[in-house]
Design a protein around this nucleic acid. Structure first.
Lengths: 352, 352
DNA sequence: AATGGCTGCGGTAACGTTCCCATGGCGTCG
DNA sequence: CGACGCCATGGGAACGTTACCGCAGCCATT
């Protein structure tokens, strides 16, 4: 009859089957205006029987909207970014959009190539965590986009979604003092990274509020890696005064490295050294002791970014930076110095 | 002149600028037959100056190939699957294709919905790790696809890509005997899972080769989670004979759980219990001791799957199951019983 | 010298959809 | 009772690209 067996049915097949024109069929399928309830049902039934599915490519050509969104993140293998991707994907699916996921692997050239691929694929917009420092590639992009993550600070003119670092630091510091630690040593990222300054500023502000002189805090810099944290911790231990050491690491990987350095120095966590991290990566659950940390809302970031992107696409520009709250995950890497319980007893309990 | 400022240039703009027809422009851009070198250069230059980029949507409409591939995996947050995604994405990019990534989160309904979204997005094909047991959704899919991972065994008629379990088990067992362990206890997945049978069969075959009676191996089942491994290990320790215990876990998460159970029982790894895992997840690097394991070639799986998918799409069906080799990662969770060195000394060395 | 083939190019249709306009029928209001 | 307007529907164009066909000019062969 109408459609051959191996071709996918089009709206014309539906129209023929329902005995109407393709215009009418389109109206019925769009669920919109000026159509008899009876013909609509007839068309819908015809569509169901022939197994019609709207061709997004054709829709995209005609309407200029492809229903495709891009996501460019530095490392898909990092569970945090994967969580962002999942949130974005779920939210996009709610609106019938699909997500093109690209991992730049911290490579500026690769990132630029990905942006090109997104343009050619005619995505409606993109969510980007830029690894490049320059505006060039983003300017060239020419499509609506939303920035995500800490690097957004560099671009004041575009809307962005990130974690609320200030709130996160407050959460961590409050938790520290509630456990009897007052002025933690800091393991920070490289000086070149903007996230470092933001983190440090938040700590300072919090110290000022509590009448602590920020200058007394020992700090060490390092790469945002396990090895970076290990080295930083080593140096921290060399400088350490007598007594319990408390460390606030700006990143979970560094916190894990710090934990390793503590063990390698023949010390114990949390008995001799307390550690709190920042990120909420799954690996923190499997260290010994488990890593107490502040978890970023990865999934929420992805969801919110897609919302912002839709606003951007539909020319309802928010031009706002949105900061989502983080949450504390208590595990075992922080000693409780606040109770009257002698340290050794607590340590013994923690052992088994 | 030709194109308005805010519209993206089309091939017609290029043609006008180069002073040729759009047919000729298309030929030049396609880099194909029957065109003077001179006009080709003129067109190419015109394309560069107006900033022309081929519209994939239009190409897709005309050619029936969208340049989009789908990837449906159970959990994007799992670094193994993320690695698969990266491999697939890289390989797809080589051919100018883009990847739609969907995470089914172990939800059959969500998986079916994703397959529908892929069809509507007019992907050229998909790579799928099916969580559903039935063929129904896959049959309904109606587009070329390649299966990936262990669940592929259920579908004999389609080409698939997976890890070489037999080789991996051999690798692990060989490593065990080289360290002086002969007949490891086994922590396996749930009986319902096909991967369990495959793993167990490989172990048995290896035992037969070495004249070991497979029946003497202690086995425990559990969920493929940290908690599952912990419970299984607990039971294993209750049954344990005197002396060193060696455990081969079918999954890294379970291996990590087993390590926790050992510590909770007041024992030490690797001094009292040796553990080897299977997967190669990053978390295994951060446990104490580091987890010795067999790593699956996630990235390679993704790459190979895309190759197979292209074959499928272009009707060069391989209809083959491809198994990629795994590799051993040696960390500290396995005691070396083979040397003359007394165990205690080795243990002491392992401590710092 | 005439004819055939080949080569470079232009014109046009088609992919599947949506939007705009035209048309006819019917109800309503003056 | 006539005219106007509204509503349901149909016809056609357009989105940007590629494939096919046709045409003109040129070289080679007879």
């Amino acid at each position: 009859m109408s459609a051959s067996r191996n071709r996918r049915p089009t709206i014309i097949d539906v129209a023929e089957r329902a005995g109407v024109s393709k215009s009418t069929a389109a109206r019925a399928l769009a669920g919109s205006s000026n159509i008899t309830e009876e013909t609509r049902e007839r068309v819908l039934k015809a569509a169901a029987t022939v197994g019609y599915e709207r061709n997004h490519l054709a829709v995209g050509m005609r309407s200029g909207r492809s229903g495709l969104l891009g996501l460019v993140i530095p490392d898909i293998t990092n569970p945090f970014w994967a969580d962002v991707a999942r949130g974005a994907q779920d939210k996009a699916a709610e609106s019938g959009a699909s997500l093109l996921v690209f991992s730049s692997d911290w490579d500026v050239a690769k990132e630029a190539a990905h942006l090109g691929a997104l343009r050619r694929a005619r995505v409606d917009g993109a969510i980007i965590n830029p690894v490049a420092d320059s505006f060039d590639d983003l300017d060239r992009f020419g499509l609506p986009f939303v920035l995500i993550g800490s690097s957004a600070e560099r671009f004041t003119e575009t809307s962005s979604v990130g974690s609320d670092i200030a709130q996160a630091v407050r959460l961590g510091m409050d938790h520290l003092v509630s456990k009897g630690h007052s002025a933690p040593s800091l393991i920070l990222g490289p000086k070149s990274r903007l996230a470092r300054a933001r983190f440090l500023r938040a700590v300072h502000e919090h110290c000022v509020e509590r009448d602590i002189d920020p200058a007394i805090l020992a700090t060490e810099d390092g790469e945002y890696t396990v090895e970076g944290g290990r080295i930083a911790m080593r140096r921290l231990l060399e400088r350490a005064h007598v007594g319990h050491v408390c460390v606030f690491a700006a990143n979970d990987m560094m916190a894990i490295g710090a934990m390793m350095a503590v063990r390698e120095a023949g010390l114990r966590c949390p008995e001799d050294v307390s550690i709190i991290g920042f990120d909420g990566i799954p690996s923190g659950e499997f260290t010994w002791p488990g890593l107490t940390t502040i978890a970023k809302p990865g999934r929420g970031l992805g969801e919110r970014a897609v919302e912002g992107l839709f606003n951007e696409i539909e020319h309802r520009p928010e031009h706002r930076r949105i900061y989502l709250p983080c949450r504390l995950i208590e595990r075992g890497s922080l000693a409780d110095l606040s109770t009257a319980t002698p340290l050794r007893a607590a340590a013994g309990a923690g052992r088994v």
